[in-house]
Design a protein around this nucleic acid. Structure first.
Lengths: 247, 247
DNA sequence: GTCAGTTCTTGATCAAGATCAAATTGCAGG
DNA sequence: CCTGCAATTTGATCTTGATCAAGAACTGAC
């Protein structure tokens, strides 16, 4: 997707300004009353920039902070016993990472940058303090986790229900929608992940994913040039994906 | 599974005694320091008994309480546009229900009893009060949600990776393990759900599920008589399921 | 630009599981 | 016990997507 949402960031050092962040409405402080947002902001640190392929979190390491991607995209995956990657999904700006770590205090899967990536972090000890004081943040954290859970269940259900092309269509439709919510052009983007990553995410082979793209192209629903995608008929994709009426 | 874990419950009316509950170690108060457990207990109400097929929660209704199944089992599912059921999973005693409701304040899926079922409930307004006061409960709620998330992601990953018999094997292995943790015989149980429910949960057809049972029976790994299951070779099932070394 | 390496596309074959269709078993009610 | 209905098993066939195998296109380095 090649995502750059680096807003102009001047004057802030350790404490980051959420106020001016383009992602604010999607991110944690977006739903909080102003005083709570300010309190949270003072606990937010800026993570260092990561290059493509670098690990944002490693499975099994202590969950020492809540992380939110600020710009770029990432791949969430686990390593199976056979050494293959089980791709859980892809992370876009404004999305939290490693929430399943709350289960054990250690991250449950790997998250690797797919392109240059920056992120914010709230150290756990500060988060716990804030949770004591801020009722809105408590509600917001539960909402965030509930949302992640709902999403994971939805993805599981879709995988069980849908055939190959339906899965690819839904993948694209979902990506479109998430890009749109972040203010990116929803029908014209560059995929940051490989066909193999998409395939492993959707429980398919990369050949089948490629063929699905080929079909959509032939039908005139898509323009595909390697990783550059133009969605010409979002309605057709949505229909195949079985989505009710999400644009 | 035909689950009866009705411990002897005398004297308690609205407030339920978690102290003597057989499920305590699996349930919310199990991880809490004693004073917090007592505070939580005072907020717990007993839900009325439900008969087979009755709804414990309906998708879209307001999430007015946190629910935990006390005895019996239930099916979590969504209704698709075509009117079919998308089965997300099955709920056993000690497991919370409807956590994805935190996302929107409304339950995200249907939960129906599969056999006579009883449950406990913590009204949301009381839960919010308690979360303000009890740091252990705050941590525990995050843990609970993190666990549910991890579980959902695991299920999604398995679905993407495993073939039909592997999925059925894993389903049985998982059930075994969960029954064991609740003190039920893990290798001898009665399924409370139909083949069709299992199939819809695993993204298969009921015929394929039936054939998988047939294969396992022929291999001598299982004894199957309708819904009565005896696991004779848990190791073989676990191996097929790709589980490392979980007994 | 050219080159090497990777990623992606396309084609041919094959197998796992879906689908269609009975037959069988189990179970509640009379 | 018998009856009727629903759930399950079993069988035959067909379709989808996996697998194997080339090619083609893209990428980054020189």
């Amino acid at each position: 997707m090649t995502i750059r949402s680096e807003e102009i960031e001047t004057g802030a050092h350790a404490g980051v300004s959420c106020r001016n962040c383009a992602l604010k409405p999607l991110c944690l402080p977006g739903q909080l009353p102003a005083p709570e947002a300010r309190a949270l902001e003072s606990a937010v640190e800026r993570g260092r920039q990561l290059g493509p392929g670098m690990a944002l979190v490693r499975a099994g390491t202590a969950m020492d902070a809540l992380l939110v991607v600020r710009s770029g995209s990432a791949k969430r995956f686990s390593l199976t016993l056979e050494g293959t990657e089980q791709v859980h999904g892809f992370v876009l700006p404004g999305e939290a990472v490693g929430l399943e770590g709350f289960a054990t205090g250690r991250y449950g899967c790997e998250v690797n940058a797919l392109e240059p990536l920056s992120y914010c972090r709230v150290p756990m000890h500060k988060l716990e303090q804030l949770l004591e004081q801020l009722p809105g943040l408590r509600r917001e954290m539960l909402r965030l986790l509930g949302q992640a859970l709902e999403e994971a269940q939805r993805l599981r259900g879709e995988l069980a229900e849908t055939d190959a092309r339906g899965r690819v269509a839904r993948f694209l439709a979902d990506l479109s929608e998430r890009l749109a919510r972040r203010g990116f052009p929803p029908y014209d983007f560059r995929l940051s992940m490989s066909r193999a990553d998409i395939a492993r995410h959707l429980g398919l082979t990369l050949e089948t994913v490629s063929r699905a793209f080929g079909t959509f192209k032939r039908e005139g629903w898509l323009r595909v040039r390697a990783r550059d995608i133009s969605v010409l008929r979002p309605d057709a994709l949505a229909a195949l994906a079985g989505v009710p009426h999400c644009a």
